[in-house]
Design a protein around this nucleic acid. Sequence first.
DNA 1: GTCTATATCATGATAGAC
DNA 2: GTCTATCATGATATAGAC
Lengths: 243, 243
Amino acid sequence: MAASIPVEYAPVPDTRTRILDAAEALFAARGFEATTMRMITSAAQANLASVNYHFGAKESLIEEVFRRRLGAITARMLARLDELERASDSGVIRPSKIVEAFFGEAICAAADEARGGKVFMRLFGRTLTEPNEFVRNFLKREYAIAVERYKQALFRALPGVSPEEIVWRLHFMLGATAHAIAGADALNLLGDEMIAAADADTLYARLMSFLLGGLRAPLPLTGANNVSSAPATPKAASSKRDG
Amino acid sequence: MAASIPVEYAPVPDTRTRILDAAEALFAARGFEATTMRMITSAAQANLASVNYHFGAKESLIEEVFRRRLGAITARMLARLDELERASDSGVIRPSKIVEAFFGEAICAAADEARGGKVFMRLFGRTLTEPNEFVRNFLKREYAIAVERYKQALFRALPGVSPEEIVWRLHFMLGATAHAIAGADALNLLGDEMIAAADADTLYARLMSFLLGGLRAPLPLTGANNVSSAPATPKAASSKRDG
DNA sequence: GTCTATATCATGATAGAC
DNA sequence: GTCTATCATGATATAGAC
């Protein structure tokens, strides 16, 4: 009789998927090195040998944990940028729209369980500072196309600001966003109570306000900016009234 | 004859110090779990057993690596806050001064080899997202007093902004700063060339401009802020013209 | 594809001579 | 305080029955 039941209400995923889910959660919670194969197979209710059967080695498993999610996330990021470029008649996009698309998509992915949700995005955020060279190189490769297109879009959107300055601000924004997603999971130097509870909408509003404030801040008076393309007046980054 | 030479030009530190130096560098470069006692003693040119003789266990060594540096750093942070409070006749300190003191001191410590320099601050920054509970709890304890005093100072400096909002902005700033200090060491999604080279002064100028821009950004329109103490007008965080 | 059992190795830690 | 030698443990990975 069981053979004719068409749909399970909560179908147990196959072994491979269970392993990926368990590994993702454990890597996020404890890091790569501190997570053993035994922990993974135990959480996945699979046999120890099944990891090697399905993925070969631990490093390949790590790769696959990322590959499974990153494709969808970068695809959506690129789609949003496509949309912005199509919607602009002049070809000029407001910088704030670019920032909203890129980092908003990160927050969005963290709120979407189908794409790994908070668990994956915490793992991803923490991996930005992961020392393991193998992981870093892999991530960089997977992410390079989306990052490069957003970077170039920002260069075009802010022709008065030096690329170096823009890259640094992106770097700062990335740090703030990663830390924001890590949230309560991060070492919470500021006190647990307030950081712990935050729905995605509130986090999005708060983070965007902060990021755009930082994006529009007056350019610092460093040598690199004085000599080249940046206008002499401060507030250059916000002079286009971009938001 | 060697016995009478009064000063060595580059005196070799004692074993204990060499172990701490090696451990600090290796932890920063590879993480706690991936760093073995053998790597540490090999780099320190010490015997494997000497770590256990001097520190007992690996966890105690980790603690000591932090304890050695954190005291001086938090002391200077607190001294700068004392100075700000003494210098203000009204008892009101400009928010930007508080942010400059706290995060500027972090950049400053990263540039000061006597306090561990970049190596320690990268380790420190990365440890903000360290999953190891033992390390997190320890750091939180060591850092709590300084963080709490700065937090309270910001609350007083921004009476019109809800504490929750302030804590979140501190959280974002912490993320941006940690990522900035990690610099080239962090997974560099944005392309190596520009992020790699940055002297402390330029980094300080760039980071401060960004952080203060974020601090002064209009408050987001979230429920938490509408109901309570924040004024209805945006730009509340910058209404005091604080920098 | 899934399991049991195991090979092989590196880890943190220690004992005990010097 | 420093060393050599070694322990017990737990790691990844595999062999081979089912």
